[in-house]
Nucleic acid binder design. Structure first.
Lengths: 227, 227
DNA sequence: GCAAAAGTGTTAAAACTACACCCATGC
DNA sequence: GCATGGGTGTAGTTTTAACACTTTTGC
C-alpha cells in the first residue's frame, strides 16, 4: 500500500443494522441485549466491523446472514455516524443500514442463540450510544421509500390480505389510513394479483389473499402515502 | 483508549463534497484538477481527511470554509462509499456530502488559488475513482429535497426573479417546466415576497424581484416538482 | 412591428378525502 | 341479530397539466 496518506489518522469502521420485521400488525426491530458494562442492560442495533476485503454493504449482508440465516435481504444505507466520541471505547465510524426481513422466513433459533430479540416499534427499549438516532433516521428513510413505492414483498408473507398490507403501512407511517382509499390506491398500481383463496382467520367474511406480481415494478415514484 | 476492538482493522476516513453553485442559468460543480499521476488530468471532488477531534460534518465544513471562505453552508450527507479498492493508494472510506453555495458570495480568488474550477452540470469532465457516482447520488438527493421544499435561498442571490428561480429548478431537474404553472405553484407556497423593484436586464418588460420571507418555512413536504 | 419574457386565465383530467353503505359470516 | 372486517360507490374538493392570451418594452 502507498504511504501518501500516513500523516492522517485511521479509525475503526463498523456497520449497524436497523432490522425491520413485521408480524401481528406490528412493525418490529431486531435488537441485541448488551450484557456487559458500560451501558449494561441497554439495547443495541446489530452490527459489526468492516473487514479488510469487504465493503460496508458486504459487511452488512454478512452480519445479517449470520444472525437471520437469510441471503438476499433488502438493504439500504441510511447514513454514516461519525461523532468522535459516539462510541465509549474508541473512535468508531458507524455506517448505518436498514434491512427489511420476512420474519416468517428467518431462522428464529439462530436469532435466539445470538441473544437478539424482536421489539415492537411502539415500545422500544433504551438504546446505547446514538442508536436511537439511527433508528429514527432509518424509519424516515423507510417512510420515504414506502411513500413512493409499494413495500410489502420484503416484509409480508408471500400471500397476504389488504388488511395486513394496510396495517403494515399504518405501522410504518404510525397513523391510520382510510380503508377504501388505501384499497383503491394500492390496487390502482397494478402490482398486486388477487388469488382465489381467502383468509378466514382475521374476519368473519374472509378476505382474498393477494400476492405481488413478479417483476411488476410500479411506475417509479407513484405517491402512495402523502408524507 | 480501550483495546477491545484491536483485532479489527482501521481505515482512513475522508469526506468528499459535491459543491453545487448556480450562475447564468446553469447549475455548476466546483472541482479540483488532479495534477499528478495516477489519474493525472482527471477531476475530483473537493475533499479531505477527517481529523481526530472532528466529525465528518465538521470536517466537511472545515474544508468548505477553506476553499470558499464561507461559513454556514447548506450541507447534507449523501452516503458513505466504502469499496475496498475505490482509492488507488490505500483503503479510504469516503463520506460524501453535497453543499449548496451562493456563487455570488463565495471567495472566488481563494477558489482559484486552490486550483478549483466551476464546471457546468451539462458538461462534466472525467472524474477520478467513484466520484461520478457520488455526483449522481448527490444530484438525486438534491432533486428529492428540491421536490419537497423550495430551494433557492442557498443558491440564488438575495433577490431574484421567478425566471431565475424557474431556470434553477430546470437545471436541478434537467427538464423544462411550464412558466405559468411553476409560477402559480411557487407563489402558492407563501414563502416568497415580491419586492417593489424590477429586473430589467433579462427581459424587455422587466420582472419583479422576489426574496425569501425570513423564517417562513413552507409546510413541510409540499410537492413542488413531481419526481 | 416583432420578439421575448412577464404575468394571468381557462379548462379538462386526475387525484385526494371523507364518507356512506351493503355484504358475508361467526358468535 | 349484531359486531366485524370486506368491499364498493359517490360527491366535493384540490391538484395537475396543457396551453391560450394579453402586457410591456427594447430593438
Amino acid at each position: 500500500m502507498g504511504e501518501k496518506y500516513n500523516k492522517y489518522s485511521k479509525y475503526y469502521v463498523a456497520v449497524d443494522c436497523v432490522i425491520f420485521g413485521y408480524t401481528n400488525d406490528d412493525l418490529k426491530l431486531l435488537l441485541y441485549h448488551r450484557g456487559f458494562e458500560p451501558a449494561k442492560g441497554m439495547w443495541s442495533l446489530i452490527g459489526g466491523f468492516v473487514g479488510e476485503t469487504e465493503s460496508s454493504d458486504t459487511a452488512a449482508r454478512r452480519i445479517l446472514k449470520n444472525i437471520t440465516g437469510l441471503d438476499e435481504i433488502y438493504l439500504e444505507q441510511v447514513q454514516a455516524f461519525t461523532e468522535p466520541k459516539r462510541d465509549i471505547e474508541d473512535r468508531v465510524i458507524s455506517i448505518t443500514y436498514y434491512a427489511l426481513i420476512r420474519i416468517d422466513k428467518h431462522n428464529s433459533d439462530k436469532v435466539r442463540e445470538n441473544g437478539a430479540h424482536w421489539w415492537s416499534m411502539k415500545a422500544l427499549p433504551a438504546f446505547i450510544f446514538d442508536h436511537k438516532e439511527m433508528v429514527d433516521k432509518a424509519l424516515e428513510k423507510l417512510q420515504l421509500k414506502a411513500g413512493l413505492e409499494l413495500v410489502g414483498s420484503e416484509l409480508l408473507p408471500d400471500k397476504f390480505t389488504l388488511l395486513q398490507l394496510r396495517k403494515l403501512y399504518e405501522a410504518i407511517f404510525q397513523k391510520e389510513l382510510d380503508t377504501g382509499n388505501f384499497r383503491k390506491k394500492v390496487l390502482s398500481l397494478k402490482v398486486l394479483q388477487r388469488l382465489d383463496e381467502k383468509n378466514t382467520t382475521e374476519s368473519r367474511r374472509g378476505a382474498y389473499y393477494f400476492k405481488f406480481i413478479e417483476g411488476a415494478k410500479e411506475k417509479s415514484f407513484e405517491r402512495i402515502v402523502k408524507i
